[in-house]
Each structure stands twice: as structure tokens, then as C-alpha cells.
Design a protein around this nucleic acid. Sequence first.
DNA 1: GACTCGTGGGA
DNA 2: TTCCCAAGAGT
Length: 293
Amino acid sequence: MGPTMTSPLVDPILHWYDEHARDLPWRRPEASPWSVLVSEFMLQQTPVVRVLPIHEAWLTRWPTPAALAAEASGEAVRAWGRLGYPRRALRLHAAATAITEEHGGEVPSEYDDLLALPGVGDYTAAAVAAFAYGRRQVVLDTNVRRVLARTVSGVEFPSRSVTRAERDLAADLLPADPPTAATWSVAVMELGALVCTADRPRCGGCPVAAACAWQAAGAPAYDGPPRPVQTYAGTDRQCRGRLLAVLRDTPGAVTRDRLDAAWDDVPQRERALASLLADGLVVRHDDGRYALP
DNA sequence: GACTCGTGGGA
DNA sequence: TTCCCAAGAGT
């Protein structure tokens, strides 16, 4: 199958998207490539509803990559708030710096240039090229993978990692016309986010339920290897979050005892602080106090 | 490939 | 309450 091959999936999903797409700031015609890039960083592993207010605040405060690059990286971490995975804030600041210094302040439009930016992997590079610049790119995120796993492969969930067959399939389905390909990509993602969800999919409202291999097979339950449960309470990640929250919520530097008060387990606290310092999310001043970079 | 890295909302 | 997880990237 090639890009000229018609699929029973494409047209219904494009039509569904036309009627059901959410009005998100980074999807509007006037949205800048920078707005799209910021949204993609924030949306990595984070729900849309939580990204919306932070994204708006960022674009107001830093309307261009150069504006963000001119600030201390710690301001990016502080403005990241409680979105989670704060290293993304640091990487987005680094990406803004690279864009300013190496791309004349303009977000690159080429996949390879995007991929070279800090914090930008295959998904984000493809998404920005497609959604900000209308390029024809295979955009393979968790939503797309789940939709294709069900509709085409007839299984409830995709494999743990992306397979060659999966990428080939996505490439085959991609419409030949670049703008249509970009719309198709965002449409499949939206279908996965709103209808073909991980749990309790709303198959009654699905535009391709009649063509879905998983439905045709009787919606068999997932029988692959068990997915690792994501623990959090008591982990280093939670400890790091607590320590960083102290710094985020305090202007300037804090004394060591402020951090010590945030977590009881001493070895774990030491380990977490060391990792935050190693990540560059926290700096230690000459006077022994700690602060955002 | 397997791990690590935050957070909070919904069922 | 407990569990699952939400537009990934880097090591």
C-alpha cells in the first residue's frame, strides 16, 4: 500500500475531526510555530486540560523563543508550575536558546533541525513540522498507535515500543497531500484522545467503528505482557517534586533546612537533591543556600 | 530495550 | 481508596 491507496479510515476520520475538533490555542490559524512547539513540550505525558493555562501564561510572557532565551532558565522552571517532569522546562529553555542562536530566532521547519533541539524527539519533531508548517510527516504518538492497533491490527493496545510494521502502516495511511496529511495526523490523535481512549473507549461515537478490526473481533481484552504499574508515593520522583516545589514557591534562595523539612527520609532526600543538582534543576550558591538556576 | 523522570484527575 | 494513566525524551 502506498500514499495513493485509499483507506476506509481516512475520510471518515477527517470528516469527524472537522466536526469534533477541540478549539485549542495552538491549533488556531494565528498560532505561531513557537506556540506549537511550546504546546508539544508541555503535552509530553501531560493532559491537555492542565497544559492550557500554563501554555497561555508562557506565550503571554515569552511570545518568542528569544524572549524566553533572554531569561534565566530557573524562571522557566518556576513558570512550569506543577505540570510535572520539570526537566522539560529546562530543555524548552535550552531549545529556545538554540533557536535564537542557531536559527535566527525562528523555529525550524525541517524535521532534522527540529530533532536536533534539546528535548525534541521523533514525535515532537514530526508534530511541529506537521502542525506548525503543514509538512507531510508520520506523526506517531500514543493516540495514533492505539487507534491503529485497534482499527487495523484488531488488538486493544499497541506493543510497548514502536515496531517497523507500525511505522510502515502509518506511512502508508498518510495522505499524499501535505496539508491533508497534517490534518489527518492531528485528526487521528484527536480521535484517540476523545473517542478511542485507553480505557472505556466510546465506540458508539466512533466514525470508523464499522471498519474497526478490534470491534469486528468482538473487542477482545488485551492479552499482551503486563504493563508496569507506575508507582509514585514514596519514590525519588515524589521526593524531587517536593524539594523543587519549595524552590518554586520561594523567591530567591532557600536555606538547607527548608529543604530538609520537605522530606523525612534522609538518604532519599540526599539522593534526590543530588540528582536535581546533576540535572541542573537546582543550583547551590556559595553561601550554601539553594535556588532555581 | 529497560528505566527514570511529576502531577493530579477520573472511575 | 486505589488504580490507571496523559500529544515522550534521554540515558
